[in-house]
Computed example of a mutant assay.
Amino acid sequence: MPSTVAEAAMAFVFGLASGVVPVLNVELYLLGLGTLGGGTLLMGAAAAGLGQTLGKIPYFYIGRGALNVPWLKRRARTPPRWAERAERWRAKAEGRPLWALGLVGVSSLASVPPFMVVSVLAGTVRMPVWSFAAVTFVTRTVRFAVVVYAPGAALWLL
């Protein structure tokens, strides 16, 4: 049992860190966890999903203008190729809360459009933080469950 808790704690910490610092790849970490096959894989996916959710909340608050952390603001800047698209999404999302939730869900699940950009956008359009966090947690956990179970599924197919 202690190894399961330790694995979940590590998945949470890595998920949190990769949520704030996108160069850290939580999917690679979870792929390794799935390959080793220890503990409860779904618990690891959920822990990483919670960590990622908490890691995206600062970007959400940057979009709201409530957080002024210079290095995070630099990371949150929309890449030039996404700036025009982000403005169109913002215009659509402001009057359509379900569309905004759908965009957050799709981006969180598929990372297209980039989820960091969508996290800032969600704050910009004044989406309630609880709905952003709930959709993010569920969709990230689903994404991470697919990743963590992929090695076992691949072995089963062979």
Rank of each mutant, 00 (worst) to 15 (best):
P58V: 08
A150C: 12
L121M: 01
A110R: 02
G38T: 11
A100P: 00
R74L: 08
A134W: 06
M116Q: 13
S18D: 06
R88G: 03
A46Y: 02
T4Q: 02
R143L: 04
K56Y: 07
L72M: 12
A47N: 01
L101G: 03
S18P: 05
K56F: 08
V106C: 13
F132M: 14
F115I: 04
A17L: 14
G19Q: 01
A86C: 10
G105A: 15
V23C: 08
A83E: 13
A86F: 06
A110W: 04
G44W: 05
S18F: 07
E94Q: 15
L155H: 07
S108W: 06
R96Y: 06
R90W: 06
V5I: 09
M116N: 10
E94T: 11
M127D: 07
L31Q: 09
G51R: 00
L30E: 10
Y29G: 02
N68Q: 09
V69Y: 13
M43Q: 01
R126W: 05
E94W: 03
S107R: 01
R143D: 01
A48Y: 03
P79K: 14
L24W: 08
L16I: 00
I57Y: 02
S111M: 12
G38C: 09
W71S: 13
L31G: 12
G152F: 09
P70G: 08
Y29I: 01
V129Y: 11
T78I: 14
V23K: 12
F137I: 04
L109H: 04
V142C: 13
E27N: 15
L30S: 12
L36F: 14
R85V: 01
V120F: 15
L42F: 01
T136G: 12
A83M: 06
R90H: 11
A48K: 11
W82E: 11
A100K: 00
T78H: 12
T124Y: 00
L50E: 00
A6S: 13
P128A: 14
V104M: 05
L30I: 07
L109Q: 05
V146I: 15
W99E: 10
F12S: 00
F115D: 03
E94F: 04
R77I: 06
L103N: 10
S131W: 14
V21N: 02
A48V: 09
G37D: 00
A9Y: 07
R96G: 03
T4W: 00
G34P: 02
V23E: 08
A86W: 10
E84V: 04
R81T: 13
V129G: 10
Y61E: 15
A110Y: 02
L157I: 11
M127S: 10
L72Q: 05
P151N: 00
I57V: 14
G95V: 05
T139P: 13
P2K: 12
A66W: 14
L103D: 06
V5E: 05
K92Q: 10
V138C: 14
T124V: 01
R77V: 08
I62K: 12
A133K: 08
T141D: 00
G19L: 01
F132C: 12
G63L: 09
R140I: 03
L33I: 12
G15A: 04
P80Y: 00
A9C: 13
R96M: 07
G63W: 08
F115K: 09
G63R: 06
R140H: 06
L155K: 09
A11G: 02
V120M: 15
A17V: 12
A133V: 04
G38I: 07
V20Y: 09
T136C: 10
P114Q: 07
F60S: 03
S119E: 05
R143Q: 05
W130P: 01
A9Q: 07
G55P: 07
